[in-house]
Structure formats: C-alpha cells, structure tokens
C-alpha cells in the first residue's frame, strides 16, 4: 500500500481495559463481570456461542450500551460517557453491515469525513476510492446497499470503517452468513489491515477458524462469563472440557442446541 497522505491510516493504536463489566436487562444478567486488557495493535478475538453475550460486550466497547456495573476504558477514556466518547475514533463493523440504505456506497463511506469535515471534497473522494479499491469494491461505488450481496455489504462496512481512519476497529461477526471462501477472504482482510496500519482490532465471532488463524489472543465467553484468555496455541492446550467443546468442529456454535447433531 502506498504511504501517501491520502491513504486511510489510523492515527495511533489504542489499548482497551475492561474491569468487572456487568450488564443486566431487567432481571436477566447478560454480562457477569468481565475483565480483560487488549494491548495496542493487537487482534483480540472474543469467541462464544450465540447468546453468550459477546455482541452486548462489543456494544459496551462502542459506547452503545451503558454498563450496569464496572468500567470500560479505551485509552483511559470512559466510552460510556457521551461527552468523552467522541475523543476515541473507533469504527464498528456491524454484523449486517448497518449501511445507510438511503445513501450510495460512495456516500456511505464519505459520510464520516464529510460530517466531521476532516478533509476537503477532493481528498475525501480520493480516500474513499482508495478504501473501495482495497476491498475490490471500485465497481460498486454508485450502487445502493440494497443491490449488494451479503459478502459485499460486509466489505463495504469494512471499507467504511477504514475511511474513518480509526484508532480501534471492532468487528461484530465479520464472517457470519458467508461461504467459507468469502469468510477466509474477510479474515485475511482483517489481518492485512492490522499488518498495514497496526490498528488495534477486536473481533467478536463464533468462527473457530477465524479466531485460531488471525487472533493474537483469544477469549472464550459463555453465558456472560469469560472462561479463558490465551493465545490460540494456549487455548488449544487447555484441559477445561468446556473449552475443548468449543474447539470441537462437530459442534455448531451458531446453534448450540444442536451440538449433538454431528
């Protein structure tokens, strides 16, 4: 990638610190005291079956949910506070893309720099085109999100995150509902982006392959509790039967009820 001033690049890598995070919706406790640290520039993959609370965890990092108890800090900034959060430039790649349906792909990408008046019109256009090119989306610039396939939507979402030049990239199920080849492509892209810009990345997924291939460290979550944090290699060597279950390819983590079906 060319190192010109028009290329999307993060300003700095941020660390994440989560302390005893608890969250309840009514009487249901979804997060039961999560504590972890993510180092700057690291790819951290949070794994767990559906309904384990990992998406809620991610929303806390993005400031979309307010903790019932505990603290979430990104580079010493309390993201639960509406006034402080804007100091962190983070990008969240939503599971379904969350593209703005009323805007073209180009406008989706250009929205953030335009709204925050980061660059002049010409620079924004160049940066958006570069981001689109990085994700092989150049032909889709004038399409509207409804015309895109699921994989393209995810790539557009990633491209949009890239244009934001974030200090922190959050991915929510980046490979779900994709065929294995597309899933592998997305995994590569996540790894490449970190390679390229050294951006701290936090991925929430139930995709074992993704977690084990790109994760610097992997956390395993079940029913709102963090079972383990370790490198992929460390995880594989763990004796905990619950963790071994995670790594058993016969079990569908997306639909844990059918785990005996294999």
């Amino acid at each position: 990638m060319p190192e010109t001033d028009t290329s999307p690049a993060p300003r700095r890598a941020l660390g994440i610190s989560v302390e005893n995070l608890r969250k309840s919706f009514g009487s249901t406790e979804v997060l039961k005291g999560i504590s972890l640290e993510v180092k700057p520039g690291e790819i951290f993959v949070m794994m767990g079956p559906s309904g384990s609370g990992k998406s809620v965890f991610l929303k806390h990092l993005a400031g979309l949910e307010i903790p019932t108890e505990g603290k979430v800090r990104i580079d010493d900034i309390n993201v639960a506070d509406d006034r402080e959060r804007p100091k962190v430039r983070l990008a969240l790649v939503f599971q379904a893309g969350a593209l703005f349906n009323s805007l073209s792909v180009f406008d989706n990408l250009a929205l953030y720099p335009r709204e925050h008046r980061l660059y002049d019109r010409k620079t924004i256009k160049e940066k958006v085109e570069k981001a689109l090119a990085m994700l092989s989306l150049s032909d889709a610039a004038e399409k509207i999100p409804a015309e895109l396939s699921g994989g393209m939507k995810k790539r557009v979402a990633i491209a949009r995150a890239l244009v934001m030049e974030p200090d922190l990239l959050l991915y929510d199920e980046p490979t779900s509902e994709l065929d294995p080849i597309m899933a592998a492509t997305i995994s590569e892209i996540i790894a490449d982006l970190r390679e390229e810009f050294g951006v701290t990345s936090l991925v929430v997924s139930h995709d074992r392959d993704l977690a084990m291939t790109i994760g610097d460290r992997v956390g395993i979550m079940q029913e709102g509790e963090l079972l383990a944090i370790d490198t992929p290699a460390g995880i594989r060597q763990m004796d905990d039967p619950r963790i071994k279950e995670f790594l058993n390819p016969a079990i569908d983590l997306k639909n844990p009820r059918f785990k005996r079906s294999a």
Binding site: K59, G63, F94, A96, N101
Partner: peptide, 25 residues
C-alpha cells in the same frame, strides 16, 4: 418507518459509533 428501520438495522448505532448524533443528522 424510516427511523425505525434505521434503528432496527443498526444504522442509528452506526451513526453513534461514528460520533454523528442521530438527533443532528
């Protein structure tokens, strides 16, 4: 309908993470 669908499909959340308050836009 438009705002509800933006909310349901997380477009509003996306705006918030982009530090674009939905009230403003």
């Amino acid at each position: 309908a438009e705002l509800a669908s933006m909310k349901v499909y997380q477009e509003v959340d996306a705006l918030i993470t982009m530090n674009i308050p939905p009230e403003r836009m």
